[in-house]
Amino acid sequence: MESQNRIWTTFRKKPMALVGMGMLAVALIMALFAPLLAPYDPNERVDVVPSDILAPPGEGHLLGRDDAGKDVLSSLIYGARVSLIVGFVSSFFSMFIGTTVGLTAGYYGGRVSNALMRFTDFLMVIPDLPLMLVIISVWGRGLWKIILVISILYWTYTARLVRSQVLSIKERQFVLRARALGASNYRIIVRHILPQVMPLIIAQAVLDISSSIIAESTLSFLGLGDPTLISWGMMLNFAFERAISRKAWWFLLPPGIAIVWVSLAIILIGNALEEIVNPRLKTHHLFNPRNMISLMLAKPLLVESESPPEVTP
């Protein structure tokens, strides 16, 4: 469609968006071709001798070994799968919930809107992390449970955003025209209102991917991740518990940098998209590209200066 072409043309001209795309592509390739790229199978049982445990980087193990004598690089590559699956799937679900709630509340207004929005506010003000911890400890650990928990807690902002857009779109004359033609509410929402909000929803969903990834890492770091899968958060958890005292930085830093890498990539893409579909944001001082990048790069640059060379094989 024409407007999508336009978004893409503008998108290509934003250097930071392209940097983000490149960074995300690296992570995606890691996740997709993990079995080919990883030097070892991280789930394979290995016979370890005491000297293998937390062995520093060296021959055959570019990033050293972890506390179980397994290859850190292989775990890192396989960890990309969990992060990206959780990120994309739960952002998709939360986009779905948020869009449905926002469209319903915005279009029908009145009591429906009040009820839905108070519920949204309620979820917004509850601190996410403790609630997630409680839910996971009741439900039990598992990849799909994590995805579900993140999706049902992270849709609120999308819902508010969509609702505010719908409030103005539903007053436009083409919606009145559709009503005069006899269109049903469902048809008006799906055919006339949703297409106008879609670009904003997509931009928001992209930004949600990174918060979902961070949420998953947090849960895994706190020991509530899926025990059968390797994820970056879980690596951090093990490293935090067992590697710090042995000064095994090669176990601690890579997963941390990987999380920052993917989140930063997605934030760069998301911000560029948001700026294109919602030009009013340009007036905000944070969206002066220079300020924005310096703010966002500040932390990762500090970390990278003391980190080992590129993690890509």
């Binding site: 436009r172 004359q173 083409f174 009145l176 559709a178 005069a180 006899g182 055919r191 006339h192 297409p195």
Partner: peptide, 21 residues
């Protein structure tokens, strides 16, 4: 619907009354 089939409206602003998408 039975009413809308037989009576229709033309709106004021042709720039606003057509869905741009």
């Amino acid at each position: 619907l039975s009413l809308r089939r037989r009576a229709q409206m033309v709106f004021q602003d042709p720039y606003e009354s057509l869905n741009p998408r």
